[in-house]
Design a protein around this nucleic acid. Structure first.
Lengths: 147, 147
DNA sequence: CTAAACCCTGTAATCGTTACAGGGTCAAGC
DNA sequence: GCTTGACCCTGTAACGATTACAGGGTTTAG
């Protein structure tokens, strides 16, 4: 079992690019690791797990700020972890709202797709719909959705 | 019926901020409008409709590049509009994939939420799960999802 | 005559990641 | 020895769309 990993090996083991790892360090999610040999970053097992934690959080769609809060809780095991539940709950709710919004968008798109095959732009249903001045979705108050 | 609108009025009428309108102009989605009085931008009805087109596209989650392509089709009414259908279809497929991914994320989150009420961080189910080194979702190859 | 409400331009911030530029170090192969 | 390639370092800029400034000018209402 190896003790020390340079950033490239950490990258392949965690599926996290070296750039991202350095980025996390700059943001304070990772404490600067020891430097060995020629000033190369030298990570230990704990750092690997911490990066895994971050990647798992990211794969769940959490932003780095939330992950940082979760890591802070993890670093202080005596803390009340209600905050962790709040973060996860808030994010879950956010996801559910996004899903509903995206489904509305998809529904609206399905109504216009495949309606203009082979025609001229002048008669294109899609283009006409976009010029329509009140989109159904924003009537419902969906607003802009990153998609 | 008014003929000319300054950027602020266009903003309130279209729900598009003045900054965004100037941004669209810089990107070439809007042709630079005439300037009146003290060099203020002076929009006509056609420009209003064009901005409405862009906003509707954005509210559907289309990116500005796709919207620009759609506007180009609209500007050339004799063009074959298959490209419009392609853009809409591609985007719809993209949305559907995103929905599936987000649903997977939400499902994974639901399994950990409300599992640590009132406890200490040391025993927090959420934090423990994040340290778990193989998230179910990335096993399935979902990868990172903007959420 | 002054304060608020507009408008202008240009630049920088946001978020997370990637891609550079410009440099150093090391190992293998010729 | 000397080159090539694979690493590593730092710092900066790009991506996309929007927002927020700074620093300036004009008009209008009080």
């Amino acid at each position: 079992m190896k003790r020390h990993y340079r950033i490239g090996e950490v990258a392949t083991r965690t599926g996290c690019s070296p750039e991202s790892i350095r980025h996390y360090e700059k943001l304070g999610l990772l404490t600067p690791p020891q430097r060995g040999e020629q000033g190369y970053r030298c990570y230990d097992q704990a750092a690997l797990e911490r990066i895994g934690f971050i990647r798992h959080g990211r794969s769940l769609g959490l932003d780095l700020h939330s992950i940082q809060e979760l890591l802070a809780l993890s670093d202080n095991p005596d803390t009340d972890c209600t905050a962790a539940d709040d973060i996860a709950s808030r994010h879950l709710q956010h996801l559910e709202e996004r899903i509903v919004a995206l489904q509305a968008l998809a529904g609206e798109l399905r109504q216009v797709v495949h309606q203009c095959r082979g025609g001229k732009a002048a008669n294109c249903r899609i283009i006409k719909t976009l010029y329509d001045h009140q989109p159904t979705c924003s009537e419902r108050g969906c607003g802009d959705v990153k998609a």
